[in-house]
């Protein structure tokens, strides 16, 4: 744990030191090369801007309007009938939010952790879930948008399937371990 923490702490300074030095030794004009590469940063940023705004606007309206909460409440009886443990229903909004929005999911997870306590079943499950999957939908729209892909083929299905497996695995392991 502390080893990995140390690696994370040193990774960026290490790269910032080693890459320019090695490049210099290999006769790369370091400063000019850096600048010409950095130029792409602006272009990429501007290119993904419309996709970011499109997704963020839809997402914020969906969360702030209370639609997320309503959907969670509507899904509850259905999932209970399918045999879901009643203790798990508190996690539904987070499970819906996770693939859609990183900041949204973090907000929901934080609320759950405070309401149920960080060391409760729901608190641990929310923590595990938050750390274990990514914002599939958001990443897809921005990454594909940045290179002009319109047809996602099976990418969305694949990402959401992985999220579902992550959710089930998180529930299983948290039930087992604690």
């Amino acid at each position: 744990m502390s080893v990995i923490g140390e690696i994370s702490r040193w990774a960026i300074p290490f790269l910032l030191l080693v890459v320019p030095v090695v490049a210099f030794l290999r006769k790369v004009p370091v400063y000019e090369s850096f600048v010409s590469g950095a130029e792409e940063g602006f272009k990429t940023g501007v290119r993904i801007l419309p996709f970011l705004i499109g997704m963020l606007v839809a997402m914020r309206i969906f969360i702030d309007s209370g639609a997320l909460e309503l959907l969670g409440r509507a899904l509850r009886p259905l999932l209970l009938r399918l045999g879901l443990d009643p203790n798990l229903t508190a996690i539904i909004p987070l499970a819906i939010m996770r693939p859609l929005s990183g900041s949204g999911a973090l907000g929901v997870a934080t609320q759950l952790i405070y309401r149920y306590g960080p060391d409760s079943f729901i608190g641990r499950l929310a923590s595990t879930l938050q750390g274990s999957t990514d914002t599939t939908f958001f990443v897809l729209t921005v990454y594909f948008g940045s290179v002009g892909i319109r047809k996602y083929r099976y990418a969305l299905k694949l990402g959401l399937l992985a999220d579902l497996v992550g959710l089930l695995a998180a529930i299983w392991i948290v039930t087992k371990v604690f």
Binding site: S36, E40, G41, G45
Partner: peptide
């Protein structure tokens, strides 16, 4: 978000270009 990303992205893409050319 996009503008914050532009700064970080320029830094990493610059470094990436160096790493490529080396």
């Amino acid at each position: 978000v996009a503008f914050e990303l532009i700064g970080v992205m320029s830094l990493w893409l610059g470094l990436m270009r160096l790493a490529e050319e080396a």
